[in-house]
Design a protein around this nucleic acid. Structure first.
Lengths: 112, 112
DNA sequence: CCTCATGTGTAGCAAGGCTACCTGTCTGCC
DNA sequence: GGCAGACAGGTAGCCTTGCTACACATGAGG
């Protein structure tokens, strides 16, 4: 899958993943790959800047911890992030509905 | 709708619109607006460069005609464009399926 | 006459994901 | 002991692509 198709939707994915529990960056990449069946295999250079963006926006908060002598930065969803996620879901629905109307995802063009 | 969410999907939309018959740029904008129920209202500065991109790629071909003293450039889908559209449709399905799995468009997370 | 819709077009900006690179620890293999 | 590779985090700069703002031209309507 052409990954740049994500453009603008990555934030929503990250929020959705963090909705199920706090994770650190590397684990987020694993979670995305696992839940997408391998389709989403995002490089660290995509994830880390995106997480910082979300943190600047106040949608996630991070805390450092040390696991096996390795520094880990764990991210969790904030209340604002949860609200943002709801908005992103609505936005995604409208977007996919609109584009799907042209590309015929699974809803036929004229049911009625 | 945040229009930049289109990123990477605009070409597919244009091909899909032209699939139903040849149109000129301005009419394409109208068609997108009409078929999307007003959601997609794209500026000319988005459409014209995109059409040139598609023409360079060989997916559409254009021809000039004069209507009411106004020069019109009419675009039609090429065979390569038709094939590209099929690929775009498949790509869209995979993309929307993948993202939908996270944002829960209409398929629940764990049906079984 | 002037404005607005029709119609095409360009220059430059901005956003966002990607490539390529760097740092460091721990584990396993030779 | 040394080296590769997974784990873990991070940055700089590129590239694509849609958007804003503008320019040009004609025809219709006030």
């Amino acid at each position: 899958m052409r990954a740049q198709a994500l453009h603008g939707h990555l934030d929503a994915l990250l929020l959705a993943v963090l909705e199920q529990g706090e994770l650190h960056g590397y684990a987020i990449i694993d979670a995305l790959r696992a839940r997408s069946g391998g389709t989403l295999d995002l490089p660290t250079g995509t994830i880390y800047p995106a997480l910082r963006r979300l943190e600047r926006a106040g949608y996630v908060a991070s805390s450092w911890s040390t696991v096996n002598g390795r520094e880990r930065r764990t991210y969790r969803l904030t209340d604002a992030g949860l609200r943002a996620l709801a908005g992103e879901r609505a936005g995604w629905r409208e977007f996919s509905d609109t584009v799907g109307r042209f590309l015929g995802t699974d809803q036929p063009p004229a049911p009625a």
